[in-house]
Write a protein that binds this DNA or RNA. Structure first.
Lengths: 178, 178
DNA sequence: CTGAACTTTCAGTATTTATTGAAAGTTTAA
DNA sequence: TTAAACTTTCAATAAATACTGAAAGTTCAG
């Protein structure tokens, strides 16, 4: 493995742990991103100097995140792996999975709090704040849904609107007037 | 503490650990969100049944995230704490801090990889993928910057555009034609 | 100054999370 | 049906992270 690859993968491992998965999972994902060919579990273990068992667990995790594809190569009994699509698709897949795993359960918990009987003023205040939080997260989910429906090309166009976020609001007003 | 409060705080603690800080920090933030009054470190420790030292560490952490305000109350030597502004402001503050802590260092690391000499084809492929990732994260930072410049009211308006994300793209095209 | 009232620090400990590798399970060519 | 080639599981262990509480530090009224 070249020094360039090495440093990327090490950093990506750390980065991974910030994004919801552990170091090993991050490193494998990083390896797949910068490797054009498909790779098998054995190669991964050797390249990253980790145990075969660990690779198995990590691949399972990556599959649950819908970030890797499995492929069978003619005349080889091993399973081969590669990352799904391009970087944009991956990034939005990670976002969507995080929403499912983090926001969804939180929304459920918040709804429970909202359904509970608020007797005193303190509870009423608490419930109102929880309502605000709930609405915010629900709105975020709406966005995420919309993104999910778009393809990589359009996602890219939308995100590159970036420098005009301010404008978007005034556009909204214009739309309303139609 | 009422059962309602209790369940909210327990969940918020777990949620916190998904958002970049630990359980205790999450619980304190949760407590502040649903408590109208300012509270002092002693009260926090007692309410959440954690040690005084732990509260001190957690408050320091919350301050580094710019999520709490400190206030001195006339005739009391203790320091009092409360959450900054409304839920929307908090949410975007968390996003901005996460960007600073996670995306920023990653961008730096990716730039280093891009500056390295790519000798063989494998390295060239790797570099190209890293370039894609770099550009994506940089674009995300542009968005984050824009958000940071807006006030809570406008953020809310923008996010509620949600259901029209698809439209925004076609609007962009119209704008261009003007 | 002094010392009471508070806050912070940090070494030791507890808890949680990740990793290994041997054993068990699965698949397939012959 | 067998056994070689592979994958998965999981108990034991290692590593990382969080928490406590006593000691050290800070601030301020008198």
């Amino acid at each position: 493995m070249s020094a360039l690859t090495q440093s990327f993968i090490l950093h990506f491992g750390e980065m991974g742990s910030k994004w919801g998965f552990n170091r090993t999972v991050g490193q494998i994902l990083g390896l797949m991103i910068i490797t054009e060919e498909m790779i098998n579990a054995e190669q991964i273990a050797k390249t990253l100097s980790i145990s075969r068992g660990n690779v198995s667990m990590a691949l399972k995790e990556l599959q649950s995140w819908r970030l890797v594809k499995t492929v069978h190569i003619q005349g080889d009994r091993k399973e081969y792996y590669t990352g799904i699509g391009d970087i944009w698709t991956m990034a939005f897949t990670v976002m969507e999975e995080r929403r499912k795993r983090e926001v969804e359960p939180t929304l459920t918990a918040l709804r429970d709090v909202l359904l509970a009987e608020a007797t005193d003023d303190k509870d009423k205040y608490a419930q109102q704040r929880v309502k605000e939080l709930h609405d915010l997260l629900e709105q975020a989910s709406v966005w995420s849904d919309e993104f999910q429906k778009m393809d990589a090309k359009n996602l890219q166009r939308l995100v590159k609107l970036g420098t005009g976020v301010g404008k978007v609001i005034s556009i909204k007003d214009k739309l309303r007037k139609k």
